[in-house]
């Protein structure tokens, strides 16, 4: 009996040291403490056994789990951009959501999604909480956070919605704060933080043309009022690639995301998801 528990103790101590995942190691340490408590009881030290049982099994494990409770989560910060990442009747849906929830299943993590507007992203992404930035992120679209970027999973266009009455390259052009915009050959450019402001400015004729990526354009077209829309034309001005942005502190996660995207592409699941949402 005693021999069995002593051998178990030895095996558990090796298992704790060899664990790579912190939460697993913590739980194993709890079992280690429980085993040692049983040994104290068997060799005639019930006082120590009671104390070790309460401390080692309940308190230490609980404190570690409390402190590490974010380790088992995959934090995702997302802008709400249908059809990539959006809420519908309280449920989160979208291309990126499906890709990420598959990743979370694979890594054995809980997916925790936080919807933020464009202005709030830099402040939240710099801390430890933001690990993945999603929501139709494309290369160099966030000039102020400088994240690691995963491989592209979808190609799309950068498009311009322009009022017909205004000749090209004149008037005020506006868009979200995107690096691509800076290279454009236009008269005057304005940067907006949120898409809704942009649409409203366009509706009120404060700006003459509007530039965004195709996902946002298709969302914006629903917001533009019909009179303005009928007199607008859409032109393609460049190509972009959608990817995930990953916090600079998580280079391992980047590799895993890339591997996951590769796998999805090879098995054809990525195409399935894309064709489901993009018709």
């Amino acid at each position: 009996m005693l021999l069995f528990f002593l051998v178990l103790l030895l095996a558990l101590s090796i298992a704790v040291v060899l664990q790579r995942r912190l939460l697993n190691a913590v739980v194993l340490l709890g079992v280690f403490s429980l085993t040692s408590s049983v040994i104290y009881f068997l060799v005639g030290a019930p006082d120590v056994a009671v104390t070790e049982g309460a401390i080692g099994v309940a308190f230490v494990t609980f404190i570690y789990v409390l402190a590490l409770s974010d380790q088992g989560k995959l934090h995702v910060i997302a802008e709400e951009v249908p059809p990539f990442f959006f809420q519908e009747r309280g449920k989160i849906k979208g291309i990126e959501y499906e890709v990420l929830s598959k990743l979370a299943d694979k890594l054995n993590l809980d997916l925790e999604v936080e919807f933020l507007s464009r202005q709030e992203v830099p402040a939240r992404f710099s801390g430890r909480r933001g690990k993945v930035l999603a929501g139709a992120y494309f290369t160099r679209s966030c000039t102020d956070i400088d994240p690691l970027e995963s491989e592209a999973y979808h190609r799309a266009q950068l498009a311009r919605v322009q009022a017909e009455t205004v000749p090209e390259k004149t008037g005020t052009t506006a868009g979200l704060d995107v690096a691509e915009l800076q290279g454009l050959d236009v008269d005057k450019i304005e940067y907006f933080d949120s898409l809704d402001d942009l649409i409203e400015a366009y509706n009120q004729k404060k700006i003459d043309s509007l530039i965004a990526d195709s996902a946002r354009i298709s969302y914006a077209l629903k917001g533009i009022n019909s009179i303005r829309k009928s007199s607008s034309e859409i032109t393609q001005i460049g190509e972009i690639e959608y990817s995930f942005a990953i916090s600079r502190e998580e280079p391992d996660l980047l590799e895993e995301v890339n591997e996951h995207l590769d796998e999805l592409e090879r098995s054809g699941q990525l195409q399935e998801i894309l064709s489901k949402y993009l018709r």
């Binding site: 006082d47 056994a49 009671v50 104390t51 309460a54 309940a58 308190f59 609980f62």
Partner: peptide
Amino acid sequence: SAHRGPGGGFAGGVIGGSGVL
């Protein structure tokens, strides 16, 4: 009752604390 059986101040305090837990 530490003088009569297993237990004692440390164990008792910790068990009470686990109730708070």
